[in-house]
């Protein structure tokens, strides 16, 4: 339909996203662009960490390396080195991290620089505990990174939605239905949910349908933060889906 010219995840116009802010700023980082990059790095810290761990680094080293890599990005405006043809944040980040790890000098220096500084509030014990749950199959660091990235996107979308429901006082409804967002609608226990929340069964069905639509929007909005146009968004969604399908 026609682009209505409003702020909208539905409109044809592609909204300003964190990654587009960072890219637009380039070498001339602004407070906004730095903040945007920081938020992106905080969201996707764990996929980076999992990648470094799978590359063979021990937990302590991997934490330091990941943290100092992120710090170096933020401090050095390293975005200037982003290849404009590889517009996605995910590709940029993995490329940059590889470069970072292969640079022995930087690696050693980085540990001193960033080792003890917690520029992003990452709970280091948690991340290692999470890493211990990663599949132990013989998969490559890149595959770990891609898969973990995809799961992070899903989590971020759920968290975003959870916040929305909490703000309007409907957290119990969200909690009751969150496990069924991707499910076949015929398997949703509408009656049980209706009874537990004192709602009509029909209202629960509608709520479940609506939650699914909202999740769809939140998911696309989350991916949109890491790309710069709608074609990339669709490509990225397809790529993430393929990652999770093992294809």
């Amino acid at each position: 339909m026609d682009d209505a010219g409003f702020p909208s995840p539905h409109s044809g116009r592609f909204a300003t996203t964190r990654w587009s802010i960072v890219q637009a700023a380039g070498v001339q980082a602004t407070p906004n662009s730095r903040h945007a990059l920081e938020e992106l790095c905080a969201t996707y810290w764990y996929p980076l960490y999992a990648y470094v761990r799978r590359r063979g680094y021990q937990a302590d080293d991997a934490q330091d390396l990941t943290q100092s890599f992120v710090l170096s990005l933020l401090e050095r405006n390293a975005v200037q080195r982003a290849d404009p043809d590889r517009g996605r944040f995910r590709s940029f980040l993995l490329g940059s991290l590889n470069k970072f790890l292969s640079d022995e000098t930087r690696k050693q220096g980085a540990q001193k620089r960033g080792g003890d500084r917690k520029i992003l509030s990452i709970n280091v014990d948690d991340v290692e505990n999470r890493y211990q749950l990663e599949p132990t199959d013989d998969i490559t660091p890149e595959a770990v990174f891609e898969r973990r990235w995809a799961l992070t996107v899903l989590d971020a979308a759920l968290t975003r939605l959870q916040g929305d429901y909490e703000r309007v006082g409907k957290l119990p409804l969200f909690e009751a239905l969150r496990g069924h967002i991707g499910a076949d609608k015929s398997t949703i226990p509408n009656r049980e949910v209706a009874e537990s929340l004192s709602m009509q069964e029909g209202a629960v069905k509608v709520a479940a349908h609506r939650l699914r639509q909202e999740y769809r929007d939140a998911l696309r909005a989350e991916i949109a933060q890491t790309v710069t146009n709608s074609k990339e968004l669709d490509d990225e969604l397809t790529g993430l889906f393929q990652t999770l399908s093992g294809t």
């Binding site: 699914r212 999740y215 969604l237």
Partner: peptide, 9 residues
Amino acid sequence: PKCLMQVGF
């Protein structure tokens, strides 16, 4: 995860 990502399409 696969079903959740599918919702995006």
